[in-house]
Every structure is written in C-alpha cells, then in structure tokens.
Amino acid sequence: MERTAFPPLERDLPERDVPDRLLAVRAAEGDEDSFAVLVQRHGRPLLALARCMLGNPQDAEEAVQDAFVGAWRRLPEYRYSAEFRTWMYRITVNRCLTMRRRRPSPLSLNTVVEPATGDAWSQPARSAEQDAAIAALSRALAALDDGQRICWILREVQGLPYKDIAHVTRTSEQTVRGRLFRARRSLQEAMGPWR
C-alpha cells in the first residue's frame, strides 16, 4: 500500500480501516478522531454533490461544513437506521436546499469546469462549443425542480443505487425513476442545440 498517497490526517489515523458504522458509534461517544476519518472518507463526494446542487465551490464548502457539524451534533441520536453515507447525503441535500431557498443563486453563466484528462471531449483542448455545452447543462440542471435535480445528480454524477437515492430523498424507487426520466428528458431538450 502506498501510504504516502493519503492526506496527513487520514494517513496517521489508526481508525483508517474501521468500518463506517463503528466509526459513527465511536464518534457518537465523543471520539473526534473517528469523526475525522468519516469526514475524510465521505467529504469529497459530498462536496461534488453540493457543488452540482449549488453551482459554485464556496457555497458547496459552506453546505458540506454545516452538514458535517450538524451530523456531529446529531450523532448521539443517530440510531443507525441508515448507513452513515446515506444519512450524510440526506443531511447535505437538505442543507443545500435550505441554502438555495435562502439565496436563490442562479448558476454563473461563466461556470467553466476543468476538463477531465483522457476524455475524448477534452482532447486536446475543449472547444468553445464544448464549454458552451457544459454551461448549458449546468443551466438546464439549475432549471430542474429540486426533486428531479437531486435524483439526477445522485444517479448520474454520484452513481448511487436507486435504493439509496430513495432513502436520501425519502421517497420510493419508482418515484426516483420517474424523476430521473423527466430530468433526462428536460436535459436532453435543453441540450438539443448541441447535438
């Protein structure tokens, strides 16, 4: 194992190989280091989720920070009815929705995402047309209703199973699939000019 690849916090923690559920139990009893491992383990996908939902990295950082702090405070009452990861997704989604309601910030039209290496779309350099297409996707995403947008991001960007998405959004798998369909349809229509 290449230990140097881990960020310092995670590298030195003896709890690194402990499953989520045990870490959550320990954190509920006041073990901060176990909580630090959970933050390291789940922070990145949650930040990606929040960024997709809120449209900019600053708000995403704030949402995820608040979500983790809220989780720390509620851990003693967390009864492990859901996996920690699903529970965290739910808290983060709710936090993002609250922030959007508080200050509906439209996605910046200039939002340009970094190209992925090795992607046919980004080789050798993304054209202005492709940038425009990605900005169009972001705009179309922002125009979806909350339920559809959350389902679409959790499925297509985060790769969660339908069961977990249903859990996070407190709905049925059938409803999740219906929302996904309508989200795909709206996004496809919005992306029509780039076909």
Binding site: L47, R51, P57, Q58, V113, E156, V157
Partner: peptide, 17 residues
C-alpha cells in the same frame, strides 16, 4: 457533458475538514 461534470475536481476537502 455529464462525464466532464463527474470528473470535475470538487472544492478542496482539506480546508473544509
């Protein structure tokens, strides 16, 4: 476009953590 969105670097975890 989704693939690019998926590969996007999320904001820094270090500062948040």
């Amino acid at each position: 476009a989704t693939r690019v969105l998926r590969a996007e670097d999320p904001p820094g975890l270090h500062a948040v953590a």
